[in-house]
Simulated assay, not measured.
Amino acid sequence: MFSKLITWIVLSLSMLLSYQLQAQEIETVGILHAVPSKCVALNQGRTCYADVKVTVNAPSEGDYCIRESLSKKILQCWAKADTFKYELDFSSDESLSYELISKKSRDVLAVTTIEVNWVHKVKTKKRRWRLF
């Protein structure tokens, strides 16, 4: 009876410890959030439009910028801040990524992607030759 109680306590503590470690990992990964992270267009190849809210929870106070990953175009910068929000008018026919960078070192601190999906995908028709 006593050994079962000790086993239960050890298992409970190990589960609690692993849960806390997972929560810490999620907090360190969650610097840059985009909502919604998916945009749905009606047909493949069409431009998808969405009002995306980007939230930043930087690890420390500093000078930060949000930029588009492909074009490296800077969208907005903040000075001496650690949490801030940005509203993005998203319009694209393909998925795009956005980066949080340090203004001084230009190091990429976090990346988020807005995925573009379609309701109807373009299907290619097979052409068959008929003699009769």
Rank of each mutant, 00 (worst) to 15 (best):
I26H: 06
D82H: 15
T124S: 11
K4C: 14
E68T: 03
F132P: 09
T112D: 06
Q22W: 10
S102N: 15
S92R: 08
R67V: 02
T28Q: 13
Y49A: 07
Q22H: 07
M15R: 08
Y49I: 10
I66A: 02
K103I: 05
L42Q: 09
N117L: 08
K126Q: 05
T112S: 11
L70R: 07
T113R: 05
T55F: 03
S91Q: 15
S105Q: 10
C39Q: 02
S105P: 03
A110L: 03
F2H: 06
V40Y: 09
K126F: 00
I101C: 06
F90S: 05
C39E: 03
A50D: 11
K103N: 12
V29E: 13
L70G: 09
D107K: 15
K125A: 13
L70T: 07
R106D: 14
I6Y: 04
E25Q: 12
S97C: 09
V111P: 00
G62Y: 04
R106N: 14
W8R: 01
L96E: 10
E61L: 07
S92V: 10
Y86C: 05
L13S: 07
V108M: 02
D82M: 12
L11A: 14
K126Y: 00
L96S: 05
I74T: 13
V29P: 00
R127P: 00
Y86L: 08
S97L: 04
W118Y: 15
Y98A: 01
D89N: 15
K121Y: 07
E61M: 11
N117M: 05
E99Q: 09
I66W: 00
K73H: 13
S97T: 04
V108C: 01
D93W: 11
H120A: 11
D82I: 06
A81Y: 03
L131F: 10
E87T: 14
S14F: 08
A81N: 09
R128D: 14
L70K: 11
K103H: 10
Q76G: 00
I74W: 01
